[in-house]
Simulated assay, not measured.
Amino acid sequence: MKFGVVVFPGSNCDADCLHAVKTVTGQPAEYIWHKSGSVEGFDCIILPGGFSYGDYLRCGAVARFSPVMTPVIEFAKKGGLVIGICNGFQVLTEAGLLPGALHRNKELQFLCHDVFLRVENASLPFTCTAREGEVIKVPIAHGEGNYFADAETLQQLEENKQVVFRYCDAQGEVTPEVNPNGSANHIAGICNQQGNVLGMMPHPERCAEKDLGNTDGQLIFKSLLDFWQRRCG
């Protein structure tokens, strides 16, 4: 399984993502420059965190028009696996691959600390080694992670089980106090209807090995590899 990590001007988690997937999965991974016109040869594309193009206009708004996004969108529409982390999640919403938008955090402050997430859908390529309701601890680092969508879209996300991760406490309880940024329905990550595109604000690549003191982020990368190995027999 070959991973591609897109590098935009202003990306700052690209090296982390590349290292994480190589360390956790033992699979090949390469950078994809934002001016590239092709993603051929890759099995999973990662849009990493950071401040693509300085977050001018809106987070992800300029990156959405990078040359590389044309083949990424085509790749996703054909069923290719795509994961957007933090700024990558913002790019995916701007590109129309995921519904909704990311707004400024409710307290208008940048947040950088660990949060607990409850796995809401364990049947996806990104979560297939988890169990529904499992709680993991993953760090956040964002100023605009407040997920918003209109009432109809939120209802569809819930009914279609497109909410993948939800902010919770260590016991899996969802309360207003554990929602760090004001996200609607405590949403921390969603997928598209087909289940092959995931966007999440927390950073699994920052908690994917023992040296970092937390390996909960391995769940996402190990799930992708497990899914791929089963798909390929």
Score class of each variant (00 low, 15 high):
residue 1 M to V: 15
residue 4 G to N: 12
residue 5 V to S: 06
residue 6 V to R: 00
residue 8 F to W: 08
residue 11 S to N: 04
residue 13 C to T: 02
residue 15 A to G: 12
residue 16 D to I: 03
residue 17 C to G: 08
residue 17 C to Q: 04
residue 18 L to Y: 01
residue 19 H to I: 09
residue 20 A to T: 07
residue 21 V to L: 05
residue 22 K to Y: 08
residue 26 G to R: 06
residue 27 Q to I: 08
residue 27 Q to N: 12
residue 35 K to D: 11
residue 42 F to V: 11
residue 42 F to N: 09
residue 42 F to L: 11
residue 44 C to W: 05
residue 45 I to L: 12
residue 45 I to V: 13
residue 45 I to F: 10
residue 45 I to D: 07
residue 48 P to L: 09
residue 48 P to A: 10
residue 50 G to Y: 06
residue 54 G to H: 04
residue 55 D to M: 07
residue 57 L to Y: 12
residue 60 G to C: 06
residue 62 V to G: 03
residue 63 A to T: 07
residue 66 S to M: 10
residue 68 V to L: 08
residue 75 F to P: 04
residue 76 A to S: 09
residue 76 A to V: 12
residue 76 A to F: 03
residue 78 K to W: 00
residue 78 K to Q: 14
residue 81 L to Y: 11
residue 85 I to T: 13
residue 86 C to W: 00
residue 87 N to V: 11
residue 87 N to Q: 04
residue 89 F to R: 06
residue 91 V to W: 09
residue 92 L to A: 06
residue 94 E to V: 05
residue 98 L to V: 05
residue 98 L to C: 13
residue 100 G to M: 08
residue 100 G to N: 09
residue 103 H to G: 09
residue 104 R to F: 09
residue 105 N to H: 09
residue 107 E to S: 10
residue 108 L to H: 11
residue 108 L to D: 15
residue 109 Q to Y: 08
residue 109 Q to D: 13
residue 109 Q to I: 13
residue 112 C to A: 15
residue 113 H to I: 00
residue 114 D to W: 11
residue 118 R to D: 08
residue 118 R to E: 14
residue 118 R to I: 10
residue 119 V to G: 03
residue 119 V to E: 07
residue 120 E to Q: 13
residue 121 N to S: 01
residue 122 A to R: 02
residue 122 A to V: 05
residue 130 A to N: 03
residue 131 R to D: 09
residue 131 R to W: 02
residue 133 G to L: 01
residue 134 E to D: 15
residue 134 E to W: 04
residue 135 V to Y: 12
residue 137 K to A: 04
residue 137 K to F: 00
residue 139 P to W: 12
residue 139 P to S: 06
residue 141 A to V: 04
residue 143 G to T: 09
residue 145 G to H: 04
residue 148 F to D: 13
residue 148 F to I: 10
residue 149 A to H: 07
residue 150 D to P: 09
residue 150 D to T: 09
residue 151 A to S: 15
residue 153 T to Y: 06
residue 157 L to C: 01
residue 157 L to R: 00
residue 158 E to G: 11
residue 160 N to E: 15
residue 162 Q to R: 13
residue 163 V to M: 00
residue 163 V to C: 00
residue 164 V to A: 04
residue 165 F to H: 11
residue 165 F to S: 03
residue 169 D to A: 03
residue 169 D to W: 13
residue 170 A to E: 11
residue 172 G to C: 10
residue 174 V to P: 00
residue 175 T to A: 15
residue 175 T to R: 14
residue 176 P to I: 14
residue 178 V to R: 10
residue 180 P to T: 01
residue 183 S to L: 04
residue 184 A to M: 07
residue 184 A to G: 02
residue 187 I to H: 02
residue 190 I to T: 07
residue 192 N to T: 01
residue 194 Q to K: 14
residue 197 V to R: 01
residue 199 G to L: 05
residue 200 M to K: 00
residue 200 M to S: 03
residue 200 M to H: 07
residue 201 M to F: 03
residue 202 P to S: 00
residue 202 P to R: 01
residue 203 H to L: 08
residue 203 H to I: 00
residue 203 H to C: 04
residue 207 C to V: 14
residue 212 L to T: 09
residue 213 G to E: 09
residue 214 N to K: 03
residue 217 G to Q: 05
residue 218 Q to C: 15
residue 223 S to C: 07
residue 224 L to T: 03
residue 225 L to K: 14
residue 225 L to D: 09
residue 227 F to S: 13
residue 228 W to S: 14
